[in-house]
Design a protein around this nucleic acid. Sequence first.
DNA 1: AGATATGAAATCGTATACGAACACTAGGTC
DNA 2: GACCTAGTGTTCGTATACGATTTCATATCT
Lengths: 228, 228
Amino acid sequence: MADTTLAGPSAAATAGSKSEQAYHAVKKQIVDGTYSPGYRLVLAKIAEDLGVSVVPVREAIRRLEAEGLVTFERNVGATVAGIDPTEYLYTMQTLSIVEGAATALSSPLIGPDDIARARSVNEEMRACLEHFDPVRFTRLNQDFHSVLFENCPNPHILDLVHRGWNRLASLRSSTFRFVPGRAQESVEEHEALLQLIQSGADAADIERAARLHRSATLDAYLSQTKNI
Amino acid sequence: MADTTLAGPSAAATAGSKSEQAYHAVKKQIVDGTYSPGYRLVLAKIAEDLGVSVVPVREAIRRLEAEGLVTFERNVGATVAGIDPTEYLYTMQTLSIVEGAATALSSPLIGPDDIARARSVNEEMRACLEHFDPVRFTRLNQDFHSVLFENCPNPHILDLVHRGWNRLASLRSSTFRFVPGRAQESVEEHEALLQLIQSGADAADIERAARLHRSATLDAYLSQTKNI
DNA sequence: AGATATGAAATCGTATACGAACACTAGGTC
DNA sequence: GACCTAGTGTTCGTATACGATTTCATATCT
């Protein structure tokens, strides 16, 4: 299965350093929800928990800030970044663009076995709809697209996709939970996308489909909030 | 005129801090070419030059690393990042995507006065062709697109555009210099793009045109290197 | 001579320490 | 009672110090 730990930023240089360790530790806890949005990240406390000094922790926090996972205020401190409706819109819109591009760029390199694997993941997602397992659903959704992106010829774009996913992590399964029916649609769109790729469709058509797949989720959210 | 100092990353939080000062100072010198690719960035030396200690400098360097402007190797140090043909391809491809999207998203908000300003910049660019002033040409090129992006409704995408531009800064005017005729084409494409926007064309058409405008430069480079 | 080992110099990575800025409470004043 | 003010505690920002690692030059061995 594709590794959805979500590779760090382009800069993974200093592996093994305490700063690196702190970065991964804090990131993990943000992405998996241990630290919720708004949680106050006190340098000294994190340093003590990890058994290191504040300097590497500070560096780690600043890196997470650059990725949008924490917000930093001078002389005040860091808090786990939430994602307000505006930020959500920006992030989803950007994701629709970069995911569309990543899918289109990868499509010529996607083989029958990849299609089969992706389809199998999608069927698992369908099963999640029955059991109502939104957390697993979200994870499988990333797996699905990760399979398609495995051979993406442009790592920069892939990196942007991963950043967007991390940015959305604080929402967990909210779109799944709050927009009923969207998850079902999503599974169908996945299948349609696979067939499009399988049929050797034009890259532009694949890009459009992949982009719409993401923006439909955004639209579903927008139209719902408008109706309330 | 549009400010092409190229806004920093989303995180401009700690304005006024020494770390911030160091960040801007080093970034400026990388972007304007004072530090060429491969230049060894020694923390202690930069710290002394700026009159601060190494800790904030280190933080600044790590931020620049995250933006791809410097490469960092553990226990060895930082060097100004070069851009090899592969990186160039990745960056240009990504730029074509995000610039295309930024242009399309901005287009409904571009008014007649914006068009006029952009056209005036483009005419300056045309003049640069006569005087053969590649550095100014590159700068004006950014100005041109900055005018179009001024009202971009998605700051995330704009940020990606700026990052790409910074990343290419180390090349200076190489595309202009090495692909004769491309600059001329570029000016013509700008004018065509303006007319497309002015005519109220479909966002999809505008996006395609803007994307091709960037990828044509990449293609020109690729076909030239192939011929050698 | 070429390759390998050894030492010194340079540079990084992190701990510790301390001054500075902010938040919050308590007390006083109108 | 509401508002302002002083004081205290918390947390950040940066300087300094030192051990760890790499690099480079020199010496030694085959």
